[in-house]
Design a protein around this nucleic acid. Structure first.
Lengths: 138, 138
DNA sequence: AATATAACTTCCAATATGAAAGTAAAAAAA
DNA sequence: TTTTTTTACTTTCATATTGGAAGTTATATT
């Protein structure tokens, strides 16, 4: 495990800009999404997501997210060359942000998004709390 | 007004990655924030925000957001060298995303964020719908 | 008439990203 | 038990994005 020195520096004391300083890139929330949706994931699992993240980028996002405390890395119970990534509560708490992105896209990019995504949006619309809890209480 | 050719291409049909393809940078949501919070803004107003966006970056985010239809640019009623930027409904509809960032940061970056931000988070916690409507129904 | 200002644009150095190839250790296959 | 795969990265390097500073142009102000 490497010691990363990426000092986080916040552009201001605004909670929005500060969150963006931490997760405001094109990949972090997709990593969170994968774990929230599928559960425990391996490096390879993330690599195979449709968006096609490069391994160098994936490696440093994972280590950044781990050092931020939104996810954990642990050993696979039987296979010693595989590691398992999971969300912490801090990570699951990003799920409402993800949900709002889904709702916005469902409204404005409807013709572009997948059927399962539309179903998920429908669930969120009819029962926001329940749907969020279902994903966050894992 | 220049014709920008930035073709948007989506990495996948996921609503989250697609939204990030449009707004997943460090500045777009801050521009939305400024208008949602203060109302109509000028180029200079945005430039003076605490985060310190550069004018080149500001210029191209504004034109990108305008071409995406989340904001509009119009003439100032009396001063012909000033332009006014406003949100469209599509832009206001990004506000719930912003609100969730505020709530997350209020929980996990509490010691770092400003007092007014904490107040806003409190409002959201006690009356989410009402608070969102207050900002989105402008 | 001279000066200042708003809204950009241009240019360039610095940083971030993506793609491809490489490495090490462990697991699976032969 | 030797060979081949597989997993989880790391390294390298070309390219894209960003930040900063210095213009530019058309008003507005003094």
């Amino acid at each position: 495990m490497k010691v990363k020195k990426d000092k986080i520096f916040f552009r201001s004391d605004c909670p929005i800009s500060s969150a963006l300083d931490l997760f405001g890139d094109k990949w972090s929330l997709l990593i969170i999404r994968d774990i929230a949706y599928f559960g425990e994931r391996t490096f390879k699992d993330f690599s195979e997501a449709a968006e096609g993240i490069s391994s160098s980028r994936l490696a440093d996002r994972l280590s950044k997210l781990e050092s931020l405390g939104v996810l954990t890395k642990s050993n696979h119970p039987t296979n010693r060359k595989v590691y398992l990534y999971n969300l912490t509560t801090k990570g699951f708490d990003l799920f409402p942000i993800i949900a709002e992105y889904v709702l916005w896209s469902n409204k404005y990019l409807y013709d572009h998004i997948s059927e399962p995504a539309k179903e998920f949006a429908k669930m969120l619309q009819s029962d926001r709390e329940g749907t969020l809890n279902q994903f966050m209480k894992k």
